[in-house]
Write a protein that binds this DNA or RNA. Sequence first.
DNA 1: CCATAACTTACACTTGGTGTAACAGTACAC
DNA 2: GTGTACTGTTACACCAAGTGTAAGTTATGG
Lengths: 211, 211
Amino acid sequence: MRAGGLRELKKNQTRQLIADTANALFRARGFDEVTVDEIAAAAQVSKKTVFNHFPTKEDLVFYRAEDREAMSLAAVTDRPAGFSILDSFRAMCLAQTRFIPGMRRDLDHPRSFFDLVSGNPSLERKMHEVNERIVRVLADALAAEAGAEPGDPLPHVVASTLVSAQRALYRRLRQRVREGGPDEEIGRAHRADVERVFDLLGTGLGGYPPV
Amino acid sequence: MRAGGLRELKKNQTRQLIADTANALFRARGFDEVTVDEIAAAAQVSKKTVFNHFPTKEDLVFYRAEDREAMSLAAVTDRPAGFSILDSFRAMCLAQTRFIPGMRRDLDHPRSFFDLVSGNPSLERKMHEVNERIVRVLADALAAEAGAEPGDPLPHVVASTLVSAQRALYRRLRQRVREGGPDEEIGRAHRADVERVFDLLGTGLGGYPPV
DNA sequence: CCATAACTTACACTTGGTGTAACAGTACAC
DNA sequence: GTGTACTGTTACACCAAGTGTAAGTTATGG
């Protein structure tokens, strides 16, 4: 069970090969139009091996979801002293502009990752599940930091709000990228979005919608 | 296609019969331990008819989700003049105490509705889906009322926060009911919970967690 | 009473996902 | 090196959810 063993290496290679093969096929033809049998055949692997690595077909698309989870969690646990959680999330959302090049690349595909997921019920469900997982992990971290009573609803509400803000801003940013324009301008608009959202979260929702 | 026609009546009866039969079986033995074939047989109906009425097996459990959706939406659209949306949701959450008797009845079952859903991945996914639907509907209503630009992330963030508050408080209330105690005491504790959550939402998240 | 539309059914089929037991290559101790 | 235990892969048989189709049945409206 050594981490750097040959066995471990081959296993990871197989996993990566399966995921890459699957996603290439999904992009080419759509999620529902590709069967797991096809994926297995294309990756020269048995169907059982696919399911040994990925519990469901949907996981082939979202297999890197742990990264996002870790990022959100780090915003709470690894923030510099004197930074509130809200500050930390605001900073994280401002930094989303670094995704712009990746978004541009994705949008170049005839079927972008976004198009793949949106409009497919089972993939959308899976996405919500991933999201909910992040909220829960974040809520636990918040509860631990705040020393909240078990069952306290507050940490979960805060976590849900922050994650939803992060996602909404990400979606908005992608939309802006899709609409076109120079990076700099998109960045400016995005920063304004971030400030609007976090101003509201910072001062309270009581005044929404404004008259 | 008359609303009060005999055909319509029988259809609704069949639908109700299938749902009731299914849920009785689910409660008795668990969601995964009952097949759709069994449900169809028990309801004396073909499997195809089950799927004609309910697109997926999970819908047999959540077939009344539209009620919740309508309730959340009404909190925005039907609120009295001078009530902010936050006020309206606070009132709605305070009124959750009326669910206490129903919760007690549910908890009497050897397998409560809650137990049925929690711990079952596909039912939890479905629940998140229902939830996300509510958030989206609410966000649209908020955006319409605020006259928000298309793509504006704010309405979605607000909607997500309100719905998550509502759900978290509902969960907390059920937990209190499960822990036992007189209704009056539970109601008092719940009202305190509601005030804590909505105070935070009203004044901003910046101070969370408190030092 | 008849024609049509709407609901149900039987049936065959696809596909995601599991269980099992055998097989193959790696790790490791000696 | 050699034997052995371990671990990932495979073939295969199987289950259950969900779909498509064509035919049967019953209400509806003229």
